[in-house]
Write a protein that binds this DNA or RNA. Sequence first.
DNA 1: CGAAAAGGCATACACACGTAAGAGATTATG
DNA 2: CATAATCTCTTACGTGTGTATGCCTTTTCG
Lengths: 130, 130
Amino acid sequence: MNQRPALSKAEMEIARIVWDLQTATVRDVLESLPEGREIDYKTVQTFLRRLETKGYLTSKRSGRSLLYTAKVRPSQVIHETVKDFVGRLFDGEALPLVEHLIREQGLKEDDLQQLKDMLSHLESEQTIPE
Amino acid sequence: MNQRPALSKAEMEIARIVWDLQTATVRDVLESLPEGREIDYKTVQTFLRRLETKGYLTSKRSGRSLLYTAKVRPSQVIHETVKDFVGRLFDGEALPLVEHLIREQGLKEDDLQQLKDMLSHLESEQTIPE
DNA sequence: CGAAAAGGCATACACACGTAAGAGATTATG
DNA sequence: CATAATCTCTTACGTGTGTATGCCTTTTCG
């Protein structure tokens, strides 16, 4: 079904920036790095090239520089990544992870309320016909 | 706070088996590998040794072989791992991940019900004082 | 008893990763 | 225009990762 090689942590970090910018040059990405994340122009360049090689991005020349954009839908990549994660840490069971998130990771009052709302809504949309 | 080097995927796989067995020899782990996961005795041995070096397990000699057990609470490791994951993929926001899990990953009717129950329960325990 | 089995410890080895330097081309600037 | 700044492309390099081999010792079994 899929079969691009998996993204490493740093690659994911860079990919997310490109997704966010929609289309970006090496420099764009470099400048969008969060405060304090000091990494060389050349390094960013390497990551973008690798992301293209791995099939996650495509590039198009624009003047003397390259414009990178997503080749695979970000949501797709996220989906796969989460799935793999759940698989490896929770035996593929999503519920225990949700449970964990609610109990032990920062879900606040507000979030809980939103979550409840979401669940009620689901109830009405129930059995969404494809 | 923490500061063991992170676990790699394969290391996590092995660690989880040890946690599950509570205490395990190389051979125990080898035999607890899931169907189809063919990996050499020596390889398992290497992983266990690395897990010890990284500070996740300790070993105690028993006869001629070594018994490995958790040195850090599994829940702790899970917690850190999930946190890192949420950090890298969802900007540290747990809610979007929960949302994702509900919408796109296998949460079924049943799970949703359980989830709702859990939420109502939380309501009663509410505002747990630190 | 002597060979095979089972262990440990040390070492290996190819490929992935994070990070970048070097070389060469193009563009901008004092 | 000569020099500095930017870019790309290629190559590098230490460390991590997945998977094991080698060698040595202690058990076990035919």
